[in-house]
Nucleic acid binder design. Structure first.
Lengths: 339, 339
DNA sequence: ATCAGTTACGTTAGCGCTAACGTTTGATTA
DNA sequence: TAATCAAACGTTAGCGCTAACGTAACTGAT
């Protein structure tokens, strides 16, 4: 293993000089020496020992990415949403010369360990939130970035999207197409703030236009018996003609159930999704959905992180990215179907 | 920050004794002292400094997960395949008390850095292979686990699936259903060994049964102009009636293109996929596919890793998991369609 | 009572690096 | 010409931990 000392001996300088060169602290080293040391280090295949660096400098170039381990409604990284975010985040922070550690955490103890044991310079909470956040913030004076968090705790750096606006967009579009009998379906309606806000945006827009969504049309639902649910909603006296799904994945469940029941999309039933994941454009028919730019979200998260690492006194920010409607073919004008 | 020394002072022992307790090296410490130290450490909220540990012990409890950064045909972590693997791998190694670092690497230098700078105890190459593997192995005497690697280099620990068998299964099933005019479609036919072996299994099974696949029916293809391709294959004198897609995602592209062209699946065209990702069962019609157990693959990778970390003299292993056909509704008997 | 063997600790040194403070040399200025 | 200063290095100490080797006290066998 090649160490600073090895290089120093070969170059006939002290290891401190080599250290300076390796850290780009070149103002205290002459140009000639800098070049010579760089060459020798290269020849010897020197790779800095990160642990020693952390220990000596009391700071690391490490970021922790935290995922919830009590996964409500499917574990993170299984859907293309959080994994795409993670991938882009990793790439971005690597560009900045940082490394990323991945941690599944289930409680305060886990989080604490993740942050402390490796002396990370910052952390990104991916789609999770912990109530002990204040304590965590106090214990670790490092920037913590949250994604899609609707916490009552202020003084948090968060990057999320305008879920409310997404709900409004969906409502507006369905209304525009003549749909008045609507439903809101998806897992974890009550789970976290994200879905809540989509629902609120959806309902309040409708209410303003004089349309109401009866409680039995707001369904917290997994993929289990989607056919049963659809049957109840569509084969009734006053059938639902438009559904706002809480995610594109959920929309695909609806597609499958509708197919089984002989309900045609969009002729009999219009469906609008959320996220615009890769497969949405290949669904049949291509899914109309509320698009969020997940890569941009990751990029912003990374930028916020770096900014706060470099200047710990940066003000708290709550970034709200806007979403857009992607019009495809899963919603059509009312009056073309069976019902 | 609480250190061993702090605990030692409070307990009236040396820091070495505390170190022993913290590492479960309890045979050199009395039961009473062990309990007392544990209690104090707990009260003080002690969390070991991993960097100091690595530095002093010259070994870490860290695993590197490496992903290729020159992503041919889509970057890793964007498809549910590699991200699901990564998630399960992380969980498994955490269970063993290890942590995971995620690295996008593009060349030998990157790989070298990832392995050396943090002194990782082992590494998993996710869906990638580097030609400098021998050098890497020699430089770092740590276990390296590969996934789905068909290298000519022996003496490598690999965990993969029987792609050849998968091809055979697909061929056998399509043949059984009466299809003789077949095609093989997907990205990176020439890219890496995985797809090659699926193709070989597919073709050689067919050849044995006296069926041949003409070269123009073996198409290295992305999602760009799938409709054009399908038109060429299906609207000909002797139309293709069965397609083996190299992945489920690719199958979904075929679904979309077929829909656009008015080709019905499975009546006019049978499609069989590969992987059995989450969405396959929700495609319309539900996709018949070759299933590989991605979580089991991750579990085996983790087990192999741990085994080789604990005993570096373990023999090299090349695990080949078998695959199975999942019969759903995208393949039907010949003679029901237009063509 | 003596000695080997065990139990339960402590001491020392150093992992590779860097923060903080020297030191030397030559150039510049009063 | 002495004082001043910056440039270009070196020295020292220590980050928190552990490997490797002590060592004292106690045990039981002879």
């Amino acid at each position: 293993m090649v160490t600073l000392k090895d290089i120093a001996e070969k170059a006939g300088v002290s290891s401190m000089t080599v250290s300076r060169v390796m850290n780009g602290n070149t103002k205290d080293v002459s140009a000639k020496t800098t070049e010579r040391i760089k060459k020798i280090a290269d020849e010897m295949g020197y790779i800095p020992n990160s642990s020693a660096r952390v220990l000596a400098s009391r700071s690391s170039r490490l970021i922790a990415a935290l995922l919830s381990d009590y996964g409500e409604g499917g574990t993170p990284l299984e859907d293309s949403y959080s994994s795409c975010f993670l991938g882009e985040l990793t790439r971005q922070i690597q560009k900045e010369g940082y490394d990323l550690m991945l941690h599944y955490v289930k409680d305060y103890t886990d989080i604490n360990y993740s942050l402390k044991s490796w002396k990370v310079a910052g952390a990104v909470f991916i789609g999770m939130f912990d109530e002990n956040i204040r304590k965590i913030q106090k214990d670790n004076s490092i920037p913590l970035i949250f994604t899609d968090s609707y916490s009552t705790v202020r003084s948090i750096i968060n990057v999320g999207i305008d879920d409310y606006q997404g709900g409004e967009l969906a409502a507006g579009y369905l209304l525009e197409k003549g749909h008045k009998n609507l439903a809101f379906i998806g897992p974890a309606v009550l789970g976290n703030g994200v879905i809540m806000h989509r629902l609120q945006g959806f309902c309040s827009f409708l209410r303003e236009k004089g349309v109401s969504v009866p409680p039995e049309h707001i369904v917290d639902f997994g993929s289990d018996d989607m056919a049963g649910l659809l049957k109840r909603l569509c084969f009734s006296e006053n059938p639902v003609t438009g559904i706002f799904a809480t995610s594109d994945v959920c929309a695909s469940w609806i597609y499958a159930a509708a197919y089984r029941l002989g309900i045609r999309i969009p002729e009999d039933l219009s469906v609008i999704g959320f996220d615009d994941i890769g497969m949405s454009r290949y669904m049949i028919p291509p899914l109309t959905t509320i698009r969020q730019d997940i890569r941009r979200k990751a990029k912003i998260a990374s930028e916020l992180l770096m900014k706060n690492i470099r200047n710990p006194d940066s003000p708290m920010e709550n970034i709200v990215m806007s979403v857009e409607l992607v019009e495809r073919e899963s919603v059509c004008g009312l009056g073309t179907g069976h019902f």
